[in-house]
Design a binder for these strands. Structure first.
Lengths: 149, 149
DNA sequence: TAATTCGTAGTCGACATGATGACGATTAAA
DNA sequence: TTTAATCGTCATCATGTCGACTACGAATTA
């Protein structure tokens, strides 16, 4: 039983970490796609939502690209999760007939349970920031900048 | 962004709750499929794993079917989750090149994070049992039997 | 004006999920 | 012993999602 095939969260964290390592330059979608082993359109789709959420900014034209809007230590993985996985649930719910008492009871319980699980997951993710994911030792200047902010 | 389409956990909980309501009779896959709005083969696949885990028993032949192996109050949803979602992860991981320091750091962090999230989710699920999902007021005899065991 | 980059729509293949049909093995009951 | 019900499992199919890819327009800078 394979896990989820949705890699948007994983790619988002990768890209944000990359941007955290280049605090002074805008990075193009093509460059980020190369770094993550995906493609530019996909990167733009993921980053587009993060831009709408105020996590990154984008600039078109030559020398344009993407940059973090905030310091890496101020972006939690919970923030990223909420943006990227918006509206998704931890487990799926099969269709139930409203007439079935068992089905109705289960639907209510599982829905409430999923809410609790989501909160639990987000709380755990909020304990880690983008700065925590940056490679130790590499890019000392970037780490210093992250710490300063 | 749709959630997971995997309904096995949801169907498993539904079926177990149904069985908890019929403590004296074996229930056929066909009947359970009708109750869950799925089909018999699918029910057998899900219940087959739960039987291997010692949660339910099956008997072939006329009058055969499925029954709970333990009292509903002794089966936590965490037990069901561990059986049904075995090997799955909370979030997907995109492929990373081992040569990339950012990628390696991220892979390690996310893998460890996923372990923590899984534990967190299972702990939350362990707080609810099949008996807790049974409809209140309905099937008083079954609830009494669940309480006795 | 030319070049670069984002924004977005559309299409495509790969893959997972469930539904369905088929058929043999097992078991209870007539 | 025969019959019917049921599980066990395989194969196949339809559907939906995900992500790659192409294409083209808009925005911006040099």
């Amino acid at each position: 039983m394979a896990g989820p095939t949705n890699t948007q969260f994983s790619v988002a964290v990768h890209v944000l970490t990359y941007l955290a390592g280049m605090p002074h330059d805008a990075v193009s979608s093509d460059q980020l796609a190369g770094s993550t082993g995906t493609n530019a359109v996909y990167v733009r789709r993921v980053l587009g939502r993060l831009r709408d959420a105020g996590v990154v900014v984008s600039r078109p034209g030559p020398g344009g690209g993407w940059q973090l809007e905030h310091a890496p230590a101020e972006i939690t993985l919970g923030d990223v999760w909420r943006v990227v996985q918006e509206g998704s649930t931890i487990f799926g719910l099969h269709a139930v007939e409203p007439a079935c008492p068992v089905g109705a009871s289960i639907a209510a319980t599982l829905t409430e349970l999923d809410t609790r699980l989501t909160q639990s997951v987000e709380a755990e993710l909020d304990r880690t920031t983008v700065a925590d994911v940056m490679p130790v030792g590499a890019l000392p200047e970037a780490r210093a900048a992250a710490a300063r902010a």
